[in-house]
């Protein structure tokens, strides 16, 4: 697989890229928490929150619409929230029967549904921007600095390094499956009647093939972990991972961080 399929970092080198990763993580989480805290229908605050997102987009030199284009990712989940239209107590607007239930649309319900969508839409844009302007290794360092347990950050670092290697293996396995199964239409293969056409097989058989692939992938991964362990031992690993702490907070980081926190707090004031 081409590695860039999993890469989310964009080398535009805007001012936001240079902001320390820790600050960006804290601000992103603060923004998402703030969205969750805003009451339903706080449209002014939501709108200003969006301006904040736009400003961040501009400061990343990615173009104002960068996060907008990618923000629909959470949309399928909105299906789950549709039912909030009927579950929130409020003034009934209309009602209709559904699978033996009487569903009542309320004004508060509609308001809640719209608010959930907006909250989610704003939050996901912040998260998209975070990984677009921060390299993933820096993000891991930020988590270390923010006192996330080292074993978890280390496992995440390994996962990040090897997801590329192992997805390549998966792609090869999938290609091999395709090459074995999909090529012979029944009419041109008189010598292999039925035996070859995967389509003739049931879903259980297909699941079994997939399961065998998973098993194979596990064994390869397990053996790889042995070799990696040896490579670590050979370079002095004794059971404790050590890391350098390459990042320091500058005055610029503090200032921008504090200012943005103030902005986010003022969103709260406006929204209530």
């Amino acid at each position: 697989m081409h590695a860039n399929l999993f890469d989310r970092y964009h080398h535009t080198e805007g001012p936001l890229h240079r902001l320390e990763a820790r600050v960006k993580v804290v601000l992103t989480v603060a923004f998402i928490v703030s969205n969750a805290l805003l009451p339903d229908g706080a449209w002014t605050a939501f709108g200003l929150g969006w301006l904040l997102v736009l400003a961040a987009n501009a400061l990343s030199l990615l173009g104002l619409g960068f996060t907008l284009k990618r923000s629909l990712i959470a949309l399928p989940f909105a299906l789950a929230a549709i039912s909030s239209i009927f579950s929130t107590p409020g003034n009934p607007l209309s009602s209709f029967p559904f699978l033996g239930m009487e569903l009542i649309v309320t004004d508060a319900g509609l308001l809640r549904f719209a608010s959930i969508l907006v909250r989610s839409w704003l939050s996901v844009q912040a998260a998209i921007l975070l990984v677009a302007v921060t390299t993933f290794p820096d993000l891991i360092h930020a988590l270390e600095h923010l006192r996330a347990p080292k074993i978890i950050t280390t496992v995440i670092a390994f996962l990040y390094r090897y997801l590329f290697v192992l997805s390549d293996e998966v792609i090869r396995l999938l290609r091999a499956r395709q090459a074995r199964s999909a090529t012979l239409p029944p009419s041109v293969s008189p010598h292999f009647p039925r035996k070859w056409g995967e389509r003739k097989r049931g879903v259980v058989w297909r699941a079994k093939v997939a399961g065998n692939m998973v098993g194979q992938l596990f064994l390869r991964s397990y053996e790889r972990s042995d070799r990696i362990y040896n490579a670590m031992l050979a370079r002095g690993y004794q059971g404790q991972i050590r890391t350098l702490h390459p990042h320091t907070l500058t005055r610029r980081d503090w200032t921008i961080g504090a200012l943005t926190v103030l902005l986010i707090l003022s969103l709260q004031l406006i929204g209530r």
Binding site: V155, F158, Y162, V165, V170, V203, A210, V214, Y222, Q238
Partner: peptide, 22 residues
């Protein structure tokens, strides 16, 4: 001692295995 590389690779394994569909 082996926990770090083992769990790290196993995490990548689960991630990659989720790509295998049928």
């Amino acid at each position: 001692e082996k926990q770090i590389p083992l769990m790290g690779i196993m995490a990548a394994f689960i991630f990659a295995a989720q790509m295998i569909n049928f």
